[in-house]
């Protein structure tokens, strides 16, 4: 199968000795991969390195066959991302913020921007300045910006943060639909086990900066009563190693 994301020996250690250690991972095209772990496990660190916001001490990430460290522009060409909380430019409107992202792709016009704002339920507020937006609206705007250029890979760090129940359900449906219809690959991190179980078809457990196990959701649910049980068992078995 075609590999959308390959992570090789990825390591990053902060001054407080926390971080991630020797993460190796492959995500096939069209998969919805869930990166599950408690707060501080290193999920955001790994994802920041994946999108070039942070430099790894060791290792590399290959996206669509291109190295993030050596060929960033090509690697990120077909990637959309949300990293931690979305912080758009508050003095601009939602439409202006979308235009900033859209300028990197000559095919994006007003119609496509409106369509993305429609999908994320922000079309009514497109000319309103972002400083008046709620946390959930900013998160939706982040998603609208991430899907604007129809990327074939979406890297979403805690995408359900700040969303209400309806927003979470809509986000989940959008992810599943994009994966099914457009064969979009998703790399999603969350500490919300339930959302990962309902959304992802492959799960990796990250604990104390180490990747404890990777398996398909189908297999996990065949062997364990829930994803939560699988998570607890992996942490019990390998968490202290």
């Amino acid at each position: 199968m075609d590999k959308a994301i390959v992570i090789e020996n990825l390591s990053k250690t902060y001054k407080n000795d926390r971080g991630i250690q020797d993460i190796n991972l492959e995500v096939e095209r069209g998969e919805i991969f869930g990166f599950l772990g408690p707060n501080g496990a290193g999920k955001s660190t790994a994802m920041k390195i994946m999108v070039g916001l942070m430099k790894a001490d060791k290792g590399d990430v290959w996206i669509n066959g291109y190295s993030v460290t050596k060929d960033y522009e090509q690697a990120m060409k077909n990637v959309g991302s949300i990293i931690e909380n979305v912080v758009p430019f508050s003095y601009l409107t939602a439409y202006d913020n979308m235009k900033l992202s859209g300028r990197f792709n000559s095919q994006i016009d007003e119609g496509i921007i409106d369509n993305c704002l429609e999908i994320t339920g922000l079309i009514k507020y497109k000319n309103e300045k972002v400083k008046n937006y709620s946390l959930g609206m900013k998160q939706r705007l982040g998603l609208a910006m991430a899907i604007l250029s129809k990327p074939n890979i979406l890297i979403l760090d805690e995408p359900f943060n700040g969303l209400d129940i309806q927003g979470m359900v809509e986000m989940r449906e959008l992810i599943i639909n994009l994966s099914a219809q457009e064969n979009t690959t998703f790399f999603i991190s969350s500490h919300l086990i339930h959302d990962i179980e309902l959304t992802c078809n492959k799960v990796g457990i990250l604990y104390n900066g180490k990747l404890l196990g990777v398996d398909s959701t189908k297999n996990i649910l065949k062997n364990y009563s829930s994803l939560e049980n699988y998570y607890l068992s992996e942490v019990d078995l390998n968490g202290d190693s």
Binding site: G52, S81, P88, S101, F104
Partner: peptide, 13 residues
């Protein structure tokens, strides 16, 4: 204000 994240995650080195 962390808006730099939007600028740096665009496909530009």
């Amino acid at each position: 204000d962390q808006t730099i994240k939007l600028t740096l995650t665009c496909p530009a080195p």
